[in-house]
Design a protein around this nucleic acid. Structure first.
Lengths: 191, 191
DNA sequence: ACCTGAACACCGTTCAAGT
DNA sequence: ACCTGAACACCGTTCAAGT
């Protein structure tokens, strides 16, 4: 029995959790190393409360970006219906990168979501990885994507996209880096 | 006058600097987040001394890995003489990745060396970037590498290689990721 | 000119006391 | 069952005093 019928949380607990995530989102947007103290204060909860809900910065970062990343799961199917697999893949990453979700801590979050970060693989497979798998599998079926490509490592490669600078120069750089990744995933270019 | 004839440092200062770097190398090999306190203690110097030489962890990380990364500068020319440009590029990164220099903090260091990390571009262009430029330029001249490839972004892409796990599984993963990068840099694969 | 190490400030984490 | 916030431990950084 993996889920031993856990009772629904009390309403104040749910409220606090939501408040914390909202405060953290605002704080991380400015500075991914924002003190947890100040986040708790901004959320209007005690520090112990925050720690009960999220045992550490990593957990908090994940909760903040999880929603945005998960929202892209649905996008994947739509892109796949309207474009060729590799183009869909490119567009998917462009959404992921260019969206306002691209805060300074997004790279860390993506690694965490991919399960490749310091946390290691989580208990259940993250939806973002599943979405990427969908795109990759379609590409493999169409013989456009190399068969040995794995979702985790593609996400790991893509995580560096967020490390490029902001601004127009960074945008162009990110675009070039994305092109390298997409072309590198293409099948049949081996020397 | 960019170098206003700075006097040679006192011998105890030189010794201390070397001791600090050696202690830091050992400490970072285990844990890139090792406390600076303990590094100073292991080096047998006061904390202020360490701070005088290296104003922060980033500077220390850079000093530790700079040597190893710089050593590869020479390798570039040799590889280029013995192999085709793209193969030389692949081997260069393989050396960079597979060598025992691949501690857990190497990724941060590579980003710092590339000047793409939080530090921003340093005063003088890092030798590693120059070496990579050498390889890329040769590849462009041979019409093997896409003309718009820039050293900084290639290094940024490669920095994720160190984030893969250790062990045989991580090795295979790193190899696949490297293949994607190299093939993505190849010219003339645009859809 | 350089070094020392105590002192300060800051942040993460815990836990006894409360509701 | 959940929350609070003071308290503790830890780490980075500074600086007055020394050589």
């Amino acid at each position: 029995m993996t889920h031993p019928a856990r009772r629904a949380p009390r309403s104040d607990a749910r409220h606090n959790r939501a408040r914390i995530v909202r405060a953290a989102r605002a704080a991380f947007a400015e500075d991914p190393a924002a003190p947890l103290h100040s986040i708790a204060k901004a959320a209007g909860v005690g520090q112990g409360t925050m720690y009960r809900h999220f045992p550490g910065r990593q957990a908090l970062l994940l909760a903040v970006y999880q929603e945005e990343v998960d929202a892209l799961t649905d996008t994947a199917a739509g892109l796949l219906a309207a474009h060729e697999p590799l183009e869909a893949l490119r567009l998917w990453f462009e959404h992921l990168t260019a969206g306002r979700s691209g805060g300074p801590g997004a790279s860390l979050a993506v690694e965490a979501v991919a399960g490749t970060g310091p946390t290691g693989p989580g208990p259940d497979r993250p939806p973002a990885v599943a979405a990427l798998d969908l795109l990759l599998d379609a590409g493999k079926a169409a013989r456009q994507v190399r068969p040995d490509a794995e979702a985790e490592e593609v996400l790991l490669l893509a995580s560096c996209l967020w490390r490029a600078d902001e601004g127009p120069a960074g945008l162009a750089r990110r675009r070039r880096m994305l092109t390298v990744i997409i072309d590198g995933l293409r099948v049949g270019v081996g020397h």
